[in-house]
């Protein structure tokens, strides 16, 4: 880890009609080559936080910097630096994987041989070269998830937002995806990883941020947090911080 990629300070967001802020005074930092886990129950404010971090949502207070640039005032250059692997497939099902990636690559200013090069590299890394010309809706569940990852890293972002990228995926595909993510981390990519699967965070993330009711309730290296709270498992720690009451 060398330099901070993502720096958020005092993020605040209120929605009309709600008595408490959706996000209240969230500050976090993500370093180059780090995978930071973002955990929290449903309705805790994870999506709002990611939306503000990626510049999709204007915060009511606080600042976000990516690679030293303020997100809202340098929206265009910041967007070039970030990638997204959303929970949904987020690709056109009727188009082939190649057509999807060519389209997305062009949106990021790639063209010609450079685009072909990146397309081959991303699909090679995710093991999708053989299905490049197949419509996305004909790919298996695991292939779709990997295609989603390939689309997120096509333009070589420095920061990747992963929003529950392994939902509904079998163990084999999940392990393959983890391997890809570790490989990307080694290449220096920073990642913000949200999930409800605690063992994923345990295996992948160096640090975690746990939020509840719009506030950070714990932040730090997984091992340190477990030790501080006297817990054996991350799930135990998580439940002790956020409670066992059912959420939205």
């Amino acid at each position: 880890m060398s330099r901070p990629l993502l720096q958020a300070e005092g993020l605040l967001k209120r929605y009309p009609g709600l008595d408490r802020p959706a996000v209240n005074d969230i500050s976090l930092c993500l370093m180059q080559g780090e995978i930071l886990g973002l955990l929290g129950p449903n309705g805790a404010g994870k999506t709002t936080t990611i939306s503000m971090l990626s510049g999709l949502l204007r915060p009511d207070g606080g600042t976000v910097r990516i690679n030293g640039r303020e997100v809202l005032s340098h929206a265009r250059s910041v967007r070039q630096m970030i990638g997204l692997v959303p929970q949904e497939l987020a690709l056109y099902p009727s188009l082939t994987l190649r057509e999807n990636l060519l389209f997305l690559g062009r949106l990021y200013g790639l063209s010609g041989s450079r685009l072909q090069e990146r397309l081959t590299a991303c699909c090679g890394m995710t093991g999708l070269l053989e299905v490049l010309n197949r419509p996305v809706d004909q790919l298996s569940g695991g292939m779709k998830r990997r295609a989603n990852l390939a689309a997120g890293i096509l333009h070589e972002p420095v920061l990747l937002f992963l929003d529950e990228p392994t939902v509904g995926v079998d163990a084999q595909s999940r392990h393959l995806i983890f391997d890809h993510l570790r490989q990307l981390r080694e290449q220096g990519l920073g990642m913000l990883y949200t999930t409800h699967y605690m063992e994923e965070v345990h295996h992948l993330c160096q640090r975690v941020v746990i939020i509840d009711e719009g506030r950070i309730v714990a932040q730090g290296a997984v091992a340190e947090l477990l030790e501080q709270q006297g817990c054996q498992q991350l799930e135990e720690l998580y439940l002790s911080l956020t409670g066992k009451a059912l959420r939205d």
Binding site: L56, L91, L107
Partner: peptide, 10 residues
């Protein structure tokens, strides 16, 4: 399909 989120981030 979630594509719009990707488009808006581009």
């Amino acid at each position: 399909q979630g594509v719009s989120r990707r488009l808006v981030l581009a």
